[in-house]
Design a protein around this nucleic acid. Structure first.
Lengths: 192, 192
DNA sequence: CAATAACCATACGCTTGAGTATGGATGCTC
DNA sequence: GAGCATCCATACTCAAGCGTATGGTTATTG
């Protein structure tokens, strides 16, 4: 069982706190991560929290590590399993474009790059993703140095899109228009 | 005269506080904007601050408006003055890429999109810049709908670059490598 | 069914930072 | 140079949020 979403009034584990922390981060950012607020949301008090964690920092650290591991392993492996290398890029783009939920934590952490704790995590995650992108571009036929730069460009476009669209609410784009944008992006950034 | 940089011990004006606020924002982000810290940095105490501003929010608001107006008018007008439309894009790219200082406030505000006060300012500024970009792309020969999408893509790449490079310190790229990246970006995103 | 461990509540102390009250110092103006 | 407006210092209050101390409750185990 172990339904850890709503106040089921069962006793809490450290993981429950970490999940709640990630949810709160996705919703309101790292700055809003306060122990008393979290406790209220979980239907308990601080007394519970300080049994599971030594400090607020410890919770943030644990939540970040949890998020980093939970990772996007499935996406990467699924894309890698595709036989045709040229088909991987468009598929990756469309996938990322239409699954917004998993990117909300990443977008929130992007706005928290002043906190020393999130920097190394984001550095590792971003690095891994960009290496993956670089490989895909090489397998799609780009010479190594160009593949690297193209990956940088693509990933920057991804990050910027996150900020501009569901952090800032820039011109609330319609569904059709959004799809057109994605296709434009694919044709512009895909070699050949 | 009015040298408003170092503690010249002259009396302060509201504009001095706003400039100091912008400097602090560029350095440490909006979250670090505290009145007592600012006062220390200016060599005075809170007593001074609360004469010029009614509240901390008021200072942030004034600083943001000041920044928005101060704007990047020169850049835009200089680019617009170039006779050959096709030459404008590369010039704009290279310019933006090599003048880091003016973008530090923008990058800091990008990380503060949870604060309700900065959202409308950033929305307006980003909107204006993207419209400018769209115009340039149209004048460079792209049909209107594509010009808009290309502008979105380009601006997203810009925003993402800010985050990834001098907020997160992603792979400290060398000068030559950076120039190569900029050129790659130009050839990839420039039509024709 | 004790007894021990795991979990949580209540009540406190401490620090930080915003905002207020008030009086003193400095400049301007007639 | 007397008087008013401008600018700043000092000394508070108040709320938020982290962390601690301590005792109570629920589960678990021998």
């Amino acid at each position: 069982m172990n339904v850890s979403a709503k106040p089921e009034r069962t006793r809490l584990s450290a993981e429950d706190w970490e999940d709640a922390a990630l949810r709160l981060i996705a919703d309101q950012g790292v700055g809003a991560l306060a122990v008393e607020a979290l406790a209220r949301q979980l239907g308990v008090t601080k007394g519970s929290f300080y049994w599971h964690f030594r400090t607020r920092e410890a919770l943030l650290q644990a939540a970040l590590e949890r998020w980093e591991q939970y990772g996007e392993r499935e996406v990467i492996s699924q894309i890698e399993a595709m036989p045709d290398p040229r088909a991987r890029l468009p598929e990756l783009f469309r996938r990322v474009a239409h699954e917004i939920a998993p990117h909300r934590v990443y977008a929130a952490l992007l706005k928290a790059l002043d906190h020393p704790q999130v920097v190394p995590v984001m550095a590792r995650v971003s690095q891994r993703r960009m290496e993956f992108l670089t490989t895909i571009y090489r397998e799609a036929g780009l010479p190594p140095p160009e593949a690297l730069n193209r990956a940088r460009l693509t990933y920057a476009a991804y990050v910027g899109f996150l900020q501009l669209n569901f952090t800032l609410g820039l011109p609330r784009i319609s569904h059709e228009e959004f799809d057109a944008y994605v296709e434009h992006m694919i044709t512009t950034l895909t070699p050949g």
